[in-house]
Nucleic acid binder design. Sequence first.
DNA 1: CCCCGCATCAACCGATCGGCCGATGGGGCC
DNA 2: GGCCCCATCGGCCGATCGGTTGATGCGGGG
Lengths: 208, 208
Amino acid sequence: MTAPPVRILLCDDHAVVRAGLLALLGSEPDIEVVGEAGSGEEAVALAAKLTPDVVLMDLQLGEGIDGVEATRRIAATGVHVLVLTTYDTDADITRAIEAGATGYLLKAERPEELFAAIRSAAQGRTTLSPPVASRVMARMRKPLPTLTDRELDILAQLSQGLGNRDIARALFISEATVKTHLGRIYDKLGVDTRAGAVAVAKEQRLLP
Amino acid sequence: MTAPPVRILLCDDHAVVRAGLLALLGSEPDIEVVGEAGSGEEAVALAAKLTPDVVLMDLQLGEGIDGVEATRRIAATGVHVLVLTTYDTDADITRAIEAGATGYLLKAERPEELFAAIRSAAQGRTTLSPPVASRVMARMRKPLPTLTDRELDILAQLSQGLGNRDIARALFISEATVKTHLGRIYDKLGVDTRAGAVAVAKEQRLLP
DNA sequence: CCCCGCATCAACCGATCGGCCGATGGGGCC
DNA sequence: GGCCCCATCGGCCGATCGGTTGATGCGGGG
């Protein structure tokens, strides 16, 4: 007897990529794409309706909720989510794993690895792309400084180009507090100016 | 008689995306993928060797030369380049067109549009995704301020988080000159702080 | 040849930033 | 209860930034 095919739900905001993945996965007899979603909301709804074995999830979804949030909601229902994305920054990886992703694959991976990861994910087994695995290990060894929620708030305002006074007003705190937070942010990010902090924030995708 | 198929060279640094496009384009009888490249250098070499009718080019290529530079070199040999990418910022569009791209499509486009654009590009006809076309038109009507080369130099240093003195030293000019340039950069970008300038620069992908 | 855009520089000044000290209070954990 | 993390605030000071005005030289286009 042959095992039943793995039922897949695709989620990617790029129609061409979805179509490409659909065509690509169509070449594997034991993998069946049962649905496509172009947004996080759609993916959450379809996952609940179709209860696929695996949701293939991109993290960058343009409008609406992002891939991490979609992953969190879908994973909470017990459906396995395999993240398939372009970026491998610490922030993205950490958030996805924390949200309950079963695996984390890069689009740069070879297609065979994707197939294998899908089959693994269907059984709840974790697969990580080598670069991703490396970063996870490095993170375990030397936990990088993580910004607190409040510090992220400050950083978000800073990335709008606001001065300390405006940040203070926007967050209903005093200017002194803003400066205190900024000092710690500089420390954690390894910079010593606000421009540098913004650069790192954008580079590392620390902000939504 | 049937026309000979359009011969395509794929260029994208993500293996999964390449495989997806390959499978997708395989469904069209009159489109034949004759080669794949995972880097700009590879694309330039293969384009010269295979002389395809159309090169399908992503702009973000990770290591090595970027998609714009690859487009410039390939277009210079008379081969049509159809840009297929995720981003639709003014800077990307402008650079790609200026580099000689025959068309500019977004990955969010429907697959049928991609097929049509490929056939058009094979005959040298231009196709632009609607959002891209909009931006081009808008740019014609009200030409946005363009940063000069020197201003981009300053902005690049600024994005490293350097202070005025360090920027001056890095570029072998006086601190006063740096401030003058920064003032004009603020003007053109519509900001009034260095943090804001860095934010816009990263957002608009003004820097390589 | 003259004008204009671009890059270069100077001097000045008020506002802001960054670094430093220390302090309080709440919440979770053992 | 004690401990630690986090967020909150204050004050001080030197360094830096942002804005302004004005000036020089160089190159291209009309």
